[in-house]
């Protein structure tokens, strides 16, 4: 009944020196779905996705991709599997245009040299496939774009190379309402196009607007991963703030020791 996740981790532990920040974490992401990753500040969301993206090594645990065990020890290995992370700071170059940015740092990796026309066509196709209509010209400099447009370009860059999993760490945090709406629609469209999307957000409206599943981290532990259609706003808030909500979540929070 349950489909096989594209990406799954089980029993994941992660410490920074003596401080353990992730304990026995299980997490899955599915093709065609948005999985929201929620939790209070410091709960371990960014650390978890950095483990998924090969930026942090994991201390213990199993990492499965398409059902097969994998070792992901660098961002390069993650990218080879088709996992892309879009960070808050976006890492775009202001003095380059949209097409140049979308191909920045990519030409060598794929091994083939692309001509300008092909790059332009691929960029246009990608933006088109995401129904992006807010950018006027793909030859615009990134410095001339709004925050929402920059986010759009960063997301388009992440899906350019047939990625399978796209991870977005608080993509709407710095945006106003109108741009947030556009980015949310884009996030939804990525999943509707078949990708597995992982969305970190503190905004419960954003989470409920686009997610199929919600995973709540509480003090470095996975309190619950549930279908969004099975929970209410207040249940998710309880999971975030106390690690449990009735039957859901960690049943022995007080007894838990690191």
């Amino acid at each position: 009944m349950t489909p096989q996740p594209v990406l799954a981790v089980r029993g994941l532990d992660k410490s920074f020196g003596p401080v353990q920040v992730l304990h026995d974490v299980a997490f899955s992401a599915y093709a065609g779905e948005v999985t929201a990753l929620v939790g209070d500040n410091g709960a371990g969301k960014s650390t978890l996705v950095k483990c998924l993206g090969g930026i942090h090594s994991i201390d213990a645990g199993e990492y499965l991709f398409d059902g097969k065990p994998v070792q992901v020890t660098s961002p390069r290995e993650a990218a080879e599997l088709g996992i892309e992370i879009v960070y808050q700071d976006l890492a775009l170059c202001d003095n380059l245009d949209i097409v140049q940015n979308m191909f920045l740092g990519r030409e060598r990796k794929s091994g083939l040299v692309l001509d300008e026309a092909t790059m332009e066509e691929m960029a246009a196709k990608t933006l088109d496939g995401l129904s992006v209509r807010t950018v006027k010209s793909i030859r615009q400099l990134v410095s001339s774009l709004s925050g929402g447009q920059r986010q759009t370009v960063a997301i388009a860059k992440a899906v350019l190379w047939n990625s399978k999993v796209v991870i977005l760490d608080e993509p709407t945090a710095a945006l106003g309402v109108a741009q947030t709406a556009q980015v949310l629609e884009l996030v939804r469209r990525l999943a509707d196009n078949g990708l597995a999307v992982i969305l970190i957000s503190h905004n419960m409206n954003d989470v409920f607007a686009v997610s199929d599943r919600i995973a709540a981290l509480y003090l470095g532990r996975m309190a619950a991963q549930v279908k969004a259609s099975d929970v209410t706003h207040s249940q998710v808030v309880e999971l975030i703030t106390s690690g449990r909500s009735g039957e859901l979540g960690l049943q022995n929070v007080n007894g838990v020791t690191a």
Binding site: A181, N205, D206, F208, V210, K227, S229, T232, H233, S234
Partner: peptide, 28 residues
Amino acid sequence: YLGAAAQVRSRITTDVLHACRESLRLRT
């Protein structure tokens, strides 16, 4: 919807038959 999705979906969770909501998609 985008500004109040938490409320909209909480209502759906509590008031809709499980079988009718399990594969329901809400979109703009």
